[in-house]
């Protein structure tokens, strides 16, 4: 029997981050937090209230925030900087590159509101290139958890992990389907949610849930499609990916990110090196987003379970 993942209640992944940050603050005095005037949106309020000495409001000045975090890390603290994904990456790329990554500083970048699903704010705020930006930086670790519980666990794990971490999560409530404590979540290891003989969907972030729905629907059609959660995009579990590439007749990737430089490219990179395969991508197709409700945006830009099913079908046709 394949496991059945059910929605235990919709929750925003950013709240998983906020809960973990508070826990971390309680147990480790080295944890400090910095916000660029988005304390409540990024769910850092509880930490700020509980540990005012270890919280730094930076104002709408992200470049300085990154540098201050690098300085705090120099003296042995573990800073979490929190803002929206576009302000956490594109706006401060050079600061992350030089003051954090090249300098080897143990700073955790907590990026909320990633992807299209932040919704009504529109394309200025819908960051879809961040995985690519962060992936190019030597020494950067990229975590992209799939629900509330996993975002909490990823935050806790990021604090333990030595070196810079980019932690990507989102704004809207989404299904919670992984357990609160989950030994199968480990940085750098693929998480196999559903086994399958006929193919595999590699998914990350919010689209993991959609991939599960796609797999269940395909099961009704007699197809057994695995769902592998790629919550760690860097360092990628190369061995694990190769194993799935070798044994899966069809291969699909699914991400709430541009089709360039994200999960699709990461899997293709491994494929071209070890196991050349046809890969279908579900991703935003080289376009900016727009205002709308999260579900409307996923529908319009081709990121729903139905789109993943179509991608599996295209991959099957290609195989024939």
């Amino acid at each position: 029997m394949r496991p059945v993942y059910t929605d235990m209640g919709a929750k925003d992944t950013r709240s998983g981050f906020g809960a973990a940050l508070l826990e971390l603050g309680e147990k480790d005095e080295r944890i400090v937090a910095l916000s660029a005037d988005l304390m409540s949106s990024v769910k850092m309020e509880a930490f700020a209230k509980r540990f005012p000495e270890r919280f730094f409001q930076c104002g709408v000045a992200e470049a300085n925030m990154i540098g201050v975090a690098a300085g705090l890390a120099t003296t042995g603290f573990i800073p979490f900087v929190g803002t929206f994904a576009n302000f956490a990456t594109g706006r401060v790329y050079d600061q992350i590159r030089q003051s954090i990554c090249y300098s080897g500083k143990n700073v955790k970048i907590a990026a909320s509101h990633a992807g299209l699903t932040l919704g009504e704010d529109g394309a200025t705020h819908q960051m879809l290139e961040d995985i690519g930006l962060m992936r190019g930086l030597p020494g950067m670790t990229i975590l992209s958890p799939c629900d509330y519980h996993q975002t909490r666990l990823a935050t806790l794990a990021a604090a333990e992990w030595e070196g810079p971490v980019y932690l990507r999560f989102g704004r809207p409530p989404v299904p919670t389907f992984t357990p609160p404590e989950d030994p199968s979540f480990q940085i750098g290891k693929l998480q196999v949610l559903l086994e399958g003989r006929d193919g595999v969907i590699f998914a990350t972030g919010h689209l993991v849930w959609h991939a599960l729905q796609a797999s269940y629907a395909l099961e009704a059609q007699g197809l057994s499609i695995a769902v592998v959660n790629v919550h760690t995009l860097k360092p990628i579990d190369e061995e694990g990916v190769v194993e799935w590439l070798e044994r899966s007749p069809v291969i699909v990737t699914a991400e709430e990110h541009q089709m360039y430089n994200g999960l699709g490219d990461i899997i293709s990179f491994i494929s071209t090196k070890f196991c050349p395969r046809f890969i279908e991508r579900v991703a935003v197709r080289d376009t900016f987003g727009e205002s709308g409700k999260p579900e409307e945006l996923l529908q319009k830009y081709g990121l729903t379970a139905a789109h993943i099913i179509s991608a599996v079908e295209r991959a099957l046709e290609h195989q024939l």
């Binding site: 990154i66 690098a70 003296t75």
Partner: peptide, 22 residues
């Protein structure tokens, strides 16, 4: 800390100063 791309060292210095204060 690495410096060269300008404008960044002051922020890092401020962070170190805060670290010392804490």
């Amino acid at each position: 800390v690495a410096t060269g791309s300008l404008g960044q060292g002051l922020s890092v210095g401020i962070g170190i100063a805060l670290g010392k204060r804490l």
